[in-house]
């Protein structure tokens, strides 16, 4: 099946409301996507998607087949075109700090994608929808492997592992084989892995699916605390409306298009609905009927 990314004339008209002000979590930073289209053969997976994600939690809501995973694959560089060009994509990354570090702005057309990818991957942590832990290895071995892939020395990695496992209440699981962990612990290990190299951008693809209430609550709490403390830019794809708070930047993606983007409570007010669930139903109703 041929895959390609194309530029569309469609625009950022979906951004009906301003995203969170940049000073809420420090200097503005995050992910910027402009007019991103992607199709598998004749099937349009993403249609002129434009997103501006500032620091803080950015909730991505969308039904199955909305294009969330394709978007994640493009942002993480797992999908590219055969010509190694990503048309219309600009991803900005920077880390928190008093003085803004030079922003890495990428306009891939005609630019070396390899260099671009390196910069992006260094500042990005990802929890994939599907578990990607090595079941036969211990928690420590899994994390050390990830650290080595980021070129972190074993000594530094061990220190980071200790810190991150402690904050996720997993320090007693260091030498446990992943196969012996329950679903909640595995998910937390994946989150620990995503945070190990201290990223400034965190992509979470349905990280709480299939977890019990307690595990979900722990992950949500930890990510929110960390986001506020470290000034992370988090893109959190979910089906679960109750994970969205009124202050979150909300993006509703449906049939490959951004149906709405803005602060959750402002969007609800604009559409005159009482909850995110109602908003979601309203924005996706027409397409569901088809």
């Amino acid at each position: 099946m041929s895959e390609s990314i194309g530029e569309s004339r469609n625009q950022a008209s979906h951004n009906m409301f301003e995203s969170r002000s940049s000073n809420q979590y420090g200097n503005s930073a995050g992910i910027e996507v402009r007019n991103l289209s992607y199709h598998y053969g004749k099937m349009q997976a993403l249609d002129a998607v434009s997103l501006t994600l500032s620091n803080g939690i950015n909730m991505l809501l969308g039904p199955n087949g909305a294009g969330k995973s394709t978007l994640f694959s493009l942002l993480t560089g797992l999908k590219t075109t055969s010509r190694h060009n990503v048309k219309g994509v600009r991803i900005k990354t920077s880390t928190k700090g008093a003085a803004p570090k030079p922003t890495c702005e990428i306009s891939v057309r005609g630019v070396n994608l390899q260099n671009t990818r390196t910069d992006i991957m260094r500042s990005m942590g990802v929890v994939f929808q599907q578990s990607t832990l090595d079941l036969d290895l211990t928690v420590q071995q899994n994390l050390l492997y990830h650290a080595s892939l980021h070129g972190i020395s074993p000594k530094t990695a061990l220190r980071n592992i200790e810190d991150v496992l402690l904050t996720l209440s997993l320090n007693n699981k260091l030498n446990a084989k992943v196969r012996r962990l329950n679903g909640g612990h595995r998910r937390r290990v994946e989150l620990a892995r995503a945070l190990l190299h201290k990223p400034s951008v965190l992509l979470l693809d349905e990280p709480t699916v299939g977890l019990d209430i307690e595990s979900r609550a722990l992950i949500i709490k930890h990510v929110r605390t960390l986001t506020e403390r470290e000034g992370l830019c988090v893109l959190w794809a979910t089906h679960l409306m109750d994970e969205v708070t009124s202050a979150d930047n909300l993006i509703v993606l449906h049939a490959g298009q951004v149906k709405a983007q803005g602060i959750s409570n402002k969007l609800c007010a604009h559409y005159q609905v009482g909850s995110v669930a109602e908003l979601y139903r309203q924005l996706t109703a027409n397409m569901e009927a088809l």
Partner: peptide
């Protein structure tokens, strides 16, 4: 199974 993604997410 998706494990390959971990390798491919390396900045190297």
């Amino acid at each position: 199974m998706g494990s390959m993604k971990v390798l491919l997410m390396s900045p190297l």
